[in-house]
């Protein structure tokens, strides 16, 4: 039993597993470390765009968690994002309160809105649920404009209260968004290994089996929408803080659709790298492409198509490569 040269690689992986770290975790940690150091290297406009990218990544996670744990698709998540964004902006401009006070409020209101939407729609699924989420998205700009005494109407609100006075606001916008993104990823990693997470995943695949083991399917739907709505509200809150302005044009049906697109191109992943891919697709790709004028929508569409095809063929490519290796 002394020489196992063949199993050596597997043994290393096993040791890493025992230490609680998988290769994917190491990638996420490395990425987080790089992002923490990045402001030392790159300049202002990049930092601003990355802050917004982190916020969008949170929104992508909100949609992905609904797909992964609920098996449902939403084209209305701009509603929950708007709830979060206006929590931050209104507390900031009307009451002079910083993110420390408004972020918990945004989260709570997002969860409550998610639950409040899930209850009446608990019997809907598939295309019917997606269309009813669309109604939410369509209502947002109207609601904001009607409540212009509070929301500032079309012109919007400017978010300026620092979290920690004395530190450059541009750095605060960047780091606050990064911290919230990492916290959401961490929370979702915990969900996957929790009792509730297991119950939700069974309820998605076999509602009748979940029922038979004490997990009501209505509970599952309400819980998933609550989580998803809460995360979307965090996205909105960070879009407001990192992007500094909150206005109705940021929360249209298109915003909801782009969140879904971001979720699709990240293959509904819930890890930090995947969320960043989705967030980058929402934030940075349009910036790259903005130089190309009228061709933007076409190039955006091509980039989207490329990502989806990659997602479609990547598993097969991997399988082919694995087969080759196995054959040697």
């Amino acid at each position: 039993m002394s020489d196992h040269p063949v199993t050596l690689g597997r043994f290393d992986a096993e040791e890493a597993r025992l230490a609680g770290l998988k290769p994917a975790d190491l990638l996420s940690l490395g990425l987080a470390a790089a992002l923490i150091l990045l402001p030392l290297l790159v300049g202002g406009s990049w930092i601003f765009a990355l802050g917004v990218c982190f916020a969008n990544s949170i929104g992508v996670l909100a949609v992905s968690v609904l797909v992964r744990y609920g098996g449902e698709v939403s084209i209305g998540h701009s509603f929950f994002a708007a709830v979060g964004a206006y929590s931050v902006a209104v507390l900031d401009t009307r009451f002079g309160l910083s993110l420390l006070a408004s972020l918990p409020l945004a989260l709570a209101l997002g969860v409550v809105s998610g639950v409040a939407f899930a209850w009446p729609s608990r019997k809907l699924s598939g295309i019917y649920l997606a269309v009813s989420t669309m109604a939410l998205a369509l209502a947002v700009p109207e609601l904001i404009n009607n409540a212009d005494g509070l929301t500032g109407g079309y012109e919007g609100l400017y978010v300026s209260q620092p979290v920690i006075p004395g530190i450059a606001m541009s750095l605060q916008r960047y780091y606050a968004a990064l911290i919230v993104l990492v916290a959401v990823v961490y929370g979702l990693a915990r969900l996957r290994h929790s009792r509730q997470g297991l119950q939700l995943l069974l309820a998605k695949a076999h509602p009748a089996a979940a029922d038979a083991f004490g997990t009501r399917r209505v509970w599952a739907r309400v819980a998933v929408m609550g989580i998803s709505g809460g995360i979307a509200a965090l996205c909105g809150a960070m879009l407001g803080f990192a992007g500094s302005t909150v206005s109705p044009s940021g929360f249209t049906l298109w915003s909801s659709i782009f969140l879904l697109v971001g979720s699709v191109v990240s293959f509904y992943g819930l890890s930090l790298p995947r969320a960043l891919v989705g967030g980058a697709f929402l934030t940075l790709v349009p910036q790259f492409l903005s130089a190309s004028g009228a061709w933007i929508p076409v190039l955006y569409g091509l980039a989207l198509l490329g990502m989806i095809l990659l997602g479609h063929y990547l598993p097969r490519l991997r399988a082919m490569i694995a087969d080759r290796k196995g054959g040697v």
């Binding site: 929790s194 009792r195 509730q196 297991l198 995943l201 069974l202 998605k204 076999h206 009748a208 083991f213």
Partner: peptide
């Protein structure tokens, strides 16, 4: 009727879920 996303062990763990009640804060 097992969940394809869960390991065998996790699927079986659901069989005892009804005896446990830790709330969301513990998640």
């Amino acid at each position: 009727a097992l969940s394809p996303d869960l390991t065998v062990l996790e699927n079986v763990m659901i069989g005892v879920a009804r005896n446990h009640h830790a709330g969301w804060q513990h998640v």
